[in-house]
Computed example of a mutant assay.
Amino acid sequence: MKAVHDIVVIGGGLLGCALAWMLARDRADIVLLEKDQINQHASGQNAGSLHFQLEYRMMEQGLDQARVAAEAMPLHLDSAKRWARLGDELGESLGVVQTGGLMLAENDEQADLLYAKSELERSWGLDVRVISGQELRTTAPYLSDTVVAASFCPIEGKADTRTAAPALARGAARLGADIRTRSEVVAIDRDGSHWSLTVRDGHGAPDATIHAATVMIAAGVWTTEVGTLLDVDLPTVPLALTMTATMKTAKFIPHLIQHAGTKLSLKQSLDGNLLIGGGWPARLMIDDAGNPDFARKPELLRHSVAGNARAAARVVPRTGNIPALRTWVGTTTVTPDQLPLVGPLAGKPGVFVATGGSAFTLGPAFAHVLVQLAQGRAPDMDLSAYDPARYARLQ
């Protein structure tokens, strides 16, 4: 295997695989390094929601918080377009369906929040409007009578988390990318005009050294840890979130469902299973030093599983009669200010990062702008709000 490449991508989730495919399509000499297996972690463990409206967590503290989170809307809009054509460009289905999303309100206060949120989103260019009354009942007859209004965004939907990242990895490999699993980066040093990465083989082979002019960090929950290898602070907040899949049932929910007043994400898969999530926490394991231990499975919390099920059954009563098939925990990462980290690392020439926000949803946009940066081109959008150095400036 080669020891010198143009670009190293660290991480084999959706973002890393999308990066590898886009770079290989542009004929870059690339190696992707994944510490475990492709799609093993967050990208393969989430529910595949393509949320382009602001999510509940982005506005649960009020409109001031929502206004900050809305600064990521250019990434939302770009990703919506890219998801819509990604399968055709790749030549392989990613299970993408964009039949619209609804964020629900069950009282006047929540409805008022939807109107204010929608006005904010429209100011950024998102197609969204609030519906109620007979239009709501006609659009979503499966909803409970407790739902008084909903903001409708026609471009929201879902992708298949089981197949999306592996399909992109296969596409990258077909174009010549070197995809290496069980390959953990344990050191990164500057070596002249290149970066020298020490890679530990998960099968026990001797450590290898890889040289590259460009390094792209697509490491998800390990982003902060990878930053320490470069003596750079990349603050992220890891989250362990609960999800439940039901038994298959006849198709009756064509939309992606969110809620303006509680943690809820609900959709029906192409196979007919209902996928229920939305941010109910699980317990992350902690190591002896008090740091999150991502090598150990997070622990389900009974009140989260029950609370998530109650929230779903209250607004879509039919869900209460469908048996659960399995419940699991997926990990993800956000940043302290809810905006993603996207861009070059100050003082580290040729090193770029993307993480945070709605990382699965935003993966195609993250990959696109990082490819532009790696090629020395100006990105399609202003990335200043997502600058990884912004936290250092606050210290």
Results as ranks from 00 to 15, higher is better:
Val186Lys: 15
Gly202Ala: 02
Lys117Glu: 09
Gly356Ile: 00
Asp189Asn: 13
Gln37Asn: 12
Ala208Trp: 05
Trp21Thr: 03
Arg390Ile: 05
Thr146Lys: 12
Tyr56Ala: 08
Ser79Cys: 15
Gln98Glu: 09
Gln338Glu: 08
Ile253Glu: 06
Ala24Met: 04
Gln45Trp: 14
Arg85Thr: 07
Pro344Thr: 06
Ala346Pro: 07
Phe152Pro: 00
Asp6Cys: 04
Thr355Gln: 02
Thr319Ser: 01
Asp127Tyr: 13
Gly343Tyr: 05
Val226Thr: 11
Leu230Gly: 08
Ala80Pro: 04
Val199Ile: 07
Asp233Phe: 12
Val68Thr: 02
Gln372Cys: 11
Asp127Ser: 13
Thr249Ile: 14
Arg67Thr: 00
Tyr115His: 14
Val8Ser: 13
Leu50Trp: 06
Thr214Met: 15
His203Ile: 02
Asp337Lys: 06
Val232Pro: 14
Ala20Met: 02
Asp29Cys: 01
Gly11Arg: 02
Ala149Ile: 01
Asp233Asn: 11
Asp293Leu: 01
Thr333Cys: 09
Val68Ser: 03
Asp337Leu: 03
Ala385Asn: 10
Thr332Ser: 09
Ser196Gln: 15
Ala213Asn: 05
Gly11Ser: 03
Pro235Thr: 10
Leu275Gly: 08
Thr262Cys: 02
Val316Arg: 10
Tyr386Lys: 04
Asp145Tyr: 10
Ala218Arg: 12
Tyr142Glu: 07
Gly356Trp: 00
Trp124Lys: 06
Glu34Ser: 00
Val31Phe: 08
Ala313Ser: 06
Gly279His: 00
Asp160Val: 06
Thr332Ala: 12
Ala295Cys: 14
Ser265Tyr: 02
Gln110Ser: 00
Ala159Tyr: 09
Thr319Trp: 03
Val8Met: 13
Ser132Asn: 03
Thr224Ala: 12
Thr244Ile: 03
Arg85Met: 12
Leu19Ser: 01
Glu184Pro: 05
Ala260Ser: 09
Val186Ala: 09
Arg326Tyr: 09
Gly91Thr: 14
Phe366Gln: 00
Gly204His: 01
Leu256Asp: 04
Leu230His: 12
Gly272Met: 03
Gly87Gln: 11
Ala20Glu: 01
Gly376Pro: 06
Asn291Pro: 04
